[in-house]
Amino acid sequence: MAKTVMVVDDSASLRQVVGIALRGAGYEVIEGCDGKDALSKLTGQKVHLVISDVNMPNMDGITFVKNLKQMPAYKFTPVIMLTTESQEGKKQEGQAAGAKAWVVKPFLPTQMLAAVSKLVMP
């Protein structure tokens, strides 16, 4: 059974490229364009991993993860947060919210694939 990864980022091109890389490796991918959109798409279905940007309109990544972790179906779902190295403060906030894995932007598709496979094999 394919593992499902949710990609949440306000950049459509980022979602597209990450989606191409992950689907190519055998994951199923669902997308959210911001925290609010992502939450509306999480209806209890199995999601093995969430990748989320920090900086997003409507609902930022930290608030999104806090909300995600409140949902019984996703409280143990691993989260990879996308960050820039200048966001140390955000990182602490995000860790507290429940995002333990961080990947620095920019990254190459292969690097994202590696990061994802460390947490969930396809």
Binding site: S13, T84, K105, L108
Partner: peptide, 11 residues
């Protein structure tokens, strides 16, 4: 931030 992040994906 977004341009940098997404630009990186395309190398």
């Amino acid at each position: 931030h977004t341009i940098k992040g997404s630009g990186g994906l395309f190398g």
